[in-house]
Design a protein around this nucleic acid. Structure first.
Lengths: 124, 124
DNA sequence: GTGTATGCAAAGCTTTTGCATAGGT
DNA sequence: ACCTATGCAAAAGCTTTGCATACAC
């Protein structure tokens, strides 16, 4: 990626505006609002580049597959609302990492997914 | 599923023998050892039935997608070895569930994935 | 003007489905 | 004999890739 195109800018703007894990479809649809010609192949190619260079990280949703979010945030976990299917980032870490695995396992990383109902859907 | 076929028995035997989260491909290959004609469509259909009736649960591996494991175990989490790519079940739960999400979120379920090196690969 | 990134279409994978038939009951 | 579950092949997602061309530089 050596040229700054309108497509590339549109995709980065999507992440700036919607700062949460997004599906490829969300990225495509939001991006098309500013660049209607935006193609799904371009989205995938750009996501790959941004993931490879560390700007984005993948998040795996139990039912929706791969989501993408901006990197560089503090360590956090994810909450998926079963009602509205939106992904949330939750600050902090409630995992007792030292107790998480038996002796003999070397834990280098971890991910925590919470599933339930978000405040919006409870209020609704 | 109202009939007990050799395919069905073969698939259940695979889970009995390899009591850890398995990929569809692993299930197919292991199953074909006893029923060579076993077809991938049958595997998917059987996995769907066993998942729907609660005998199996899905486990989502960050890179390998959906794995299947037998249900009815105590609450546990998963460890994925980055070296040998094997999935382990870890007993217990080191998550402080009450602290996991801010007020306003209702946490119904959670999953924890640990990534690192397993004892076998450390020893090797 | 040069060469990269895009759009389009085709191809790869994984998973699902339609249909004729083997085989469990 | 009946009718479900299977195998096969086609289809339906999702993601990647080849190729001509638009466009950033």
């Amino acid at each position: 990626m050596k040229r700054i195109t309108s497509q590339r800018r549109a995709i980065e703007a999507v992440f700036a505006k919607h700062d949460r894990p997004l599906t490829v479809e969300e990225i495509l649809n939001y991006g098309r609002k500013s660049v209607p010609s935006l193609n799904i192949a371009t989205v995938y190619r750009t996501l790959k580049i941004l993931t490879d260079n560390g700007s984005l990280v993948k998040v795996f949703h139990p039912s929706f597959g791969t989501l993408y979010e901006r990197s560089g945030k503090d360590h956090h976990h994810h909450f998926f609302c079963r009602e509205c299917n939106r992904a949330y980032e939750l600050p902090g870490c409630a995992l007792k990492v030292d107790d998480a695995a038996p002796d003999g396992f070397v834990v280098e990383d971890h991910e925590v997914f919470l599933l339930g109902k978000c405040p919006k859907c409870i209020a609704a």
